[in-house]
Write a protein that binds this DNA or RNA. Structure first.
Lengths: 342, 342
DNA sequence: TTGTACGCGTTATCAT
DNA sequence: ATGATAACGCGTACAA
């Protein structure tokens, strides 16, 4: 391995000077700088990142926490590739790397473990849920002053760094859209309220219904678990109340598609006999039949913002007041929510 | 930060002894060990991973290379979460961590960059393609003795560590299945042959057709780029030759679904008027209408094997003969390939 | 079975 | 503008 020492010798300078050149520190003669760079090039010298981390007492790694549940596909491809790419883009700009941790639900009860070994300087946490245990472990992280940022989740009554999308407004728009298309009897299929998204969406739905002077009868509220299967099963229930429902707003695409599949078996076709809007604008929304109207979420930007938020905390002024960022969503209209009785 | 020194002092031993206890090295008195552990516990001591890396001259990180193309969704959720989980499981068993790199096509022309800074001890490379430049940069890696393993890709004429699935056999089974269901005029829609999967699948298809005594006329060979759009566009062409085609085997699910969407617009329904089988058994296969028959690939195991392969190379005896692992695939039969004229 | 002492390749501080 | 040098926290060879 080529070290700083050899470069210094070849360039006829001290090791400190080599470091200064590579870190762009202090004033120095251009000639010296060039001599050093030339020597480094000749020797193919590259600073040892580990030694740098050791000396700087910073790993240069941003931890990214993903929930892992075997055989349960929580995320769409879009979610993964876009969020990770967003984070990746940002960390690269700041000379950082991404260290991935796939945590099972009980492992995520001790986030501090991630920081203990000093392998990460901060974390972006994806897919956290609002359980008492999780709240507690996040509060613990915060108390210890370990920098982290949540993505797509916030906690009532607690104040963390977080980047979320405006799911209330998104849902409001979705329901308004259905109303504009002539639908009145609009059901809402939600997922677990462990995810703040879920309650946000319920709020948006409720508000849109109220604003339109529509009543939310109990049959209009369906409970699922974000899986296609739960959507499929809800279709049976929906079918019983078919006189009282002409549209469904579902809290994610997967359930929306399950629902469409289930109702198709009864002979009801989305976009013809009833309308559906989903959430996430995942790949599946474009692949489904008919293509599913859905609420687009700017995952790439969310990842990028979250990473920025953590890294500025790590590198610069630690802002003591948590920064809450909320990006806007966008309704993508497709065939599944066509005008009533077209 | 609590260091080894403080633990040593509290336990009344030398620093070396503390290290020995934490690394389980050498014979030592049980009493000493317990005293050290007790002291460590009291102080909440945890070894500094960076200092360890520095001293050991190993980062303890396995690099994972993913291709990044903005707005192009190469992978299914299944692919991501399963492969990463497989790698994650294995690295954890060996006390390693995962360092993620999202590389654009031209960045991946210089893989050595990843190793230069010493932040990773080895790499698992996903989504590499068979281009002259990539071949060259991989050969360069190999020559320099940097440990890496490819997943789901192999290179004709070159011998790298790699973990692949048996796409030839998988495709053979898929086409056999279509034949068993009564189909004879079976088209094959392939993706870019930059991916070895593609040529493997063509081989399986060809062999199955030959074995059944069926001719492969030129109209039966369709070219796509693994996108839904290309599948959709191929539907138009297929429609022209509809007398000469009664089934399609597509090299991924996305194209298969695009094809089904396109032909549905002509009034042809998969599983009724023609049959389709895809590849990957992605989530989309279950979500599509009708559900898509597809070839399942053991992504989790592939990730795990790849990580194992690299890490044993890093840690133990560097086997000079590259290890090529091939796992088997499994056909998942769904509605899209129902029996002819049912 | 345990202690001593050195080295790892930087960063950063203090001289010059 | 540049050089000398003390950390940094651990692994480990060698000594005892």
């Amino acid at each position: 391995m080529v070290t700083r020492k050899e470069v210094a010798e070849l360039a006829g300078v001290s090791e400190a000077t080599v470091s200064r050149v590579f870190n762009g520190l202090g004033p120095m003669k251009l000639a010296t700088k060039e001599r050093v760079l030339e020597a480094a090039k000749q020797l193919d010298y590259h600073p040892n990142a580990i030694a740098q981390s050791f000396a700087r007492r910073r790993s240069g790694n941003l931890g990214v926490v993903l929930p892992y549940m075997p055989k349960v596909h929580l995320f769409s491809a879009f979610y993964f590739s876009e969020i990770l790419s967003g984070i990746g883009e940002q960390v690269r700009e700041q000379g950082y790397d991404m260290l991935l941790s796939l945590l099972t639900p009980d492992e995520s009860l001790d986030y501090t473990r991630l920081y203990r070994s000093q392998k990460v300087d901060g974390c972006v946490i994806l897919g956290s849920r609002n359980t008492p245990q999780q709240r507690q472990s996040l509060e613990q992280l915060q108390q210890q002053g370990l920098p982290f940022c949540l993505v797509n989740q916030h906690f009532e009554g607690l104040s963390f760094h977080e980047v979320d999308a405006d799911h209330v407004e998104g849902s409001y728009q979705a329901v308004r859209h259905l109303q504009d298309e002539g639908y009145r009897k609009i059901a809402f299929m939600n997922g677990s309220t462990d995810y703040s998204n879920s309650s946000d969406r319920l709020r948006g739905y409720t508000q849109a219904m109220n604003d339109a002077g529509l009543v939310i009868s109990p049959e209009l509220l369906l409970q699922g678990n974000y899986s296609r299967k739960s959507g499929y099963e809800a279709a049976a229930k929906l079918w019983e109340y078919r006189d009282q429902v002409d549209a469904v707003f579902a809290a994610n695409d997967r359930m929306a598609i399950g629902l469409m599949q289930g109702l198709r078996e009864k002979g009801w076709i989305a976009g013809r006999d009833f309308a559906v809007v989903g959430c996430d604008d995942s790949d599946a929304a474009k692949l489904s039949d008919p293509p599913l109207s859905s609420i687009n979420v700017p995952f790439y930007e969310m990842g990028k913002e979250a990473a920025r938020s953590v890294l500025t905390g790590v590198l610069g002024a630690r802002s003591d007041n948590p920064k809450q960022i909320q990006l806007s969503t966008q309704l993508m209209v497709r065939q599944s929510s066509k005008r009533f009785s077209d």
